[in-house]
């Protein structure tokens, strides 16, 4: 197990690379989902505002 982590003396380089890859993957997934959620919330808000506008105008 220690041999595996040591990576023949290149452990620091190999694990840092894989760690960075993990960070980039997680960032991509999270930020994509966030972008979609934000856009959806904004669309909902715009629609409900338009609905309230229409309602007040018709009164």
């Amino acid at each position: 197990m220690n041999d595996f982590l040591a990576m023949g003396g290149y452990g620091a380089y190999v694990w840092t690379s894989y760690g960075l890859a993990a960070i980039v993957l997680v960032w991509n997934i999270r930020s994509a989902l966030e972008a979609h959620r934000d856009a959806r919330h904004r669309a909902e808000r715009a629609l409900s505002m338009a609905a309230t506008d229409a309602a007040t105008r018709s009164m």
């Binding site: 994509a32 972008a35 979609h36 959806r40």
Partner: peptide, 27 residues
């Protein structure tokens, strides 16, 4: 990832389209 992000971009461009009502009505 592109599917998720492109959906967000579509929503931004279609902010007031009425089809969004069907999408968001239950919520």
């Amino acid at each position: 990832l592109a599917c998720v992000r492109v959906r967000a971009e579509v929503l931004r461009r279609e902010r007031n389209a009425h089809w969004l009502k069907d999408l968001t009505a239950p919520r």
